[in-house]
Amino acid sequence: MTGKVLSFGELLLRICPDVDGQWLEENNLPFYVGGAEANVATALALWDVPTGYVTALPDHFLAQQLVDYLKSRKVQTDAIYYHGDRVGLYFLPKGKDLKNAGVIYDRAHSAYADLKPGMIDWDAVFEGVSWFHFSAICPAINQAVAYVCLEALEVAAQKNIFISLDLNYRAKLWKYGKEPVEIMPALAHHCNLIMGNIWAANKMLGISLDEELIANLNKESLLEQATLTSQEILQKFPKCSIVANTFRFDYEQGIRYFTTLYNQNELLVSHEYLAPKILDKVGSGDCFMAGLIYGYYNELDPSETLEFATAAAFNKLFIPSDATTSTVADISKTVEANV
């Protein structure tokens, strides 16, 4: 594939207070640059895929520092739209006891949340682009941003640009009176590759889920459901030819992770990874998505693509940030060690 991969989403700062409140005593508040689509863009740039990123940011020094950060990681930023006053934030505490401490979003009236159709010149933005990526987090913010997504997809489809969608579900974001299933199918209609999991596909696209079949989380049953989910997605959304699903389970003894890829009427299943302890779950799915794009962009065999993406996602679980720092060589070592 030639041309660049363009990702669209909100650039965020993740603020990480500890649950014990020690940050107040130490005047020390760790942070990371984040945002699902930015994580995809920085991973692809690290892996030498020509990569652009489009978002909306205010025109002030903080935003410029963030843009410089992306540029330093070889992400093209010339398509960023400048307006408004705020950079979006989210707070995710760190520490041992996180049971009652969930994510807190502070994204209302950010530059990205205040986007409206007609603001971004998508014809110009898509110049030289062969792949467009976005996630279900974008239309979760508000109806106007959902319309902006649709506007982008319609232009991309007209230009025969390959489109990928990550069905990441964020219950705390869908607060504007619409259920995901009322918004997402119209967007998925334009997509060539849809990634998520069997539960997200049910929640966001109305895809059937046999609760009885998967009640015990038996792997064979999960794979059967992954096949059914993938086939139904292909049937409902004819433009889609590739469906990927991730399976990550947390147990007292550690984490279990494997993925599937439905391609050309065949369900491919990745190596299953087990680990007693991880460092950071944030961005693992984004890394898997980036791995899929990397594989298809470089025309790798589908099985090779799936194993690369899965290993990339697994490696991310041990990197304390939103974006991966694993190189292609690092990921290839993980694959080779587990074949």
Results as ranks from 00 to 15, higher is better:
D330E: 07
V125D: 01
T324V: 01
P58W: 08
G21F: 12
T2M: 10
I242F: 09
L44Y: 01
D121Q: 11
M195K: 14
T259Q: 10
F318D: 03
L306M: 04
A124S: 13
A43W: 01
A290N: 05
G118S: 10
G206Y: 09
E37V: 02
F31H: 11
D121M: 06
R170A: 08
V339H: 15
A38N: 02
Y257H: 13
C191R: 01
L92M: 13
M119N: 03
Q264L: 12
Q76D: 12
L57K: 06
N265A: 12
G285F: 00
Q253I: 12
D330L: 07
A188N: 09
H133A: 06
L13T: 09
D18A: 11
A113I: 05
S221A: 13
R248V: 00
T227G: 02
R256K: 15
Q76P: 02
A311C: 08
L11G: 03
E336I: 12
Y257A: 11
L234M: 10
V148N: 02
L213F: 10
S303L: 14
K4F: 02
D123H: 14
V339L: 13
G254L: 07
L57R: 06
Y296S: 12
G21C: 10
Q235V: 07
L70V: 03
D78F: 01
F314N: 09
Q143S: 07
S110W: 08
A309W: 04
V87Q: 01
C287T: 12
A56R: 08
V145K: 01
